[in-house]
């Protein structure tokens, strides 16, 4: 069992977990992920490591409660335990001094982009962060990002923070101002990474994306996480998770991510019903 040292919501439905994992903390590099199981009947899900501390022996993950497993995970509190935790998995991010590095992130992707932005800065790059979210409440890790990069720009779908628009609009603004990125790293929802890759392909700016695929073992044994990159099948878990965004077949990956949509909502519904029952039982118990 793996102890949760600290759990707190950092945005609506988005929770940050500090988990005791000394071996993973010691080994982990930017861009790598872990696989966890919440309980003894749970599924295995991959989550990118946002931060870690070797001396204190913990890793940090940021979880958005979308499906059954992430919703269940987000009910866990400080002092609770995870059933299983394994890592670090995947290849670390390749970092070099490109010149100007623009880190584009959306949703919880910002937490995952943070270590890459920091490593990019440490390698000597001028680093600009573009953070996108639906609204201002969902902008996360803005301050931590500001601490490590040269400049942070924000866009929201509803205009409640930063520029009204999409991250691609901010990237266009940058270039209109005469800032030409030498390298772009995009991490976040698939449509966002696809849109950025599409935009940068035309103007020929190298763009690395961190793919989020359905996985089981995470060691290359099952092939659930296959994606097509440059016309070839890759396994995201061992060949990635980072790939050249201009080569990724986003349409295929998007369809693969929805493979279990029906089962996922069935499972989520069952979970919510169980939670409701539990809550009612507690209320009844308290009433007595």
């Amino acid at each position: 069992m793996y102890k949760i040292l600290k759990a707190e919501f950092i945005a609506p439905n988005v929770k940050s977990f500090i988990i005791e994992a000394p071996l993973i903390a010691k080994k982990r590099e930017a861009g790598q992920f872990i696989i966890l199981r919440v309980h003894d009947r749970g599924e295995r899900i991959p989550i990118t490591i946002a931060d870690s501390n070797t001396e204190e022996g913990w890793i940090n993950i940021i979880v958005q409660g979308l499906g059954k497993t992430s919703a269940h995970l987000n009910t866990l509190e400080t002092g609770d335990h995870l059933q299983d935790l394994v890592g670090p998995l995947g290849l670390p991010t390749h970092i070099e001094n490109w010149g100007t590095l623009v880190c584009i992130s959306g949703g919880v992707g910002t937490a995952e982009a943070l270590p890459i932005a920091a490593a990019g800065k440490a390698a000597g790059n001028r680093v600009i962060s573009i953070i996108g979210a639906r609204n201002k409440d969902l902008v996360i890790a803005e301050n931590q990002m500001a601490d490590v990069v040269d400049e942070v720009r924000i866009s929201t779908d509803d205009g409640s923070a930063g520029r009204h628009g999409l991250v691609t609009d901010v990237l266009q603004d940058l270039m209109d101002e005469g800032i030409v990125p030498d390298m772009i790293v995009a991490i976040g929802p698939l449509p966002m990474m696809a849109a950025v890759s599409n935009q940068t392909k035309e103007i020929n700016i190298p763009t690395m994306v961190s793919l989020n695929a359905i996985m089981v073992d995470g060691t290359g044994m099952c092939g659930a996480c296959r994606a097509t990159v440059g016309g070839k099948t890759v396994f995201v878990c061992v060949d990635g998770p980072e790939f050249d965004g201009h080569q990724v077949d986003f349409k295929e990956l998007g369809m693969r991510q929805k493979m279990y949509k029906k089962q996922e909502s069935e499972s989520h519904k069952c979970f919510l019903e169980r939670q409701m029952k539990k809550l009612k039982a507690e209320q009844v118990a308290e009433g007595v």
């Binding site: 009947r41 599924e43 295995r44 497993t69 089981v216 089962q263 996922e264 499972s267």
Partner: peptide, 14 residues
């Protein structure tokens, strides 16, 4: 391994 044949009692779908 994941007992998907017992879905949704077990979480893994198939």
């Amino acid at each position: 391994l994941m007992r998907a044949y017992e879905f949704p009692e077990w979480d893994t779908p198939l």
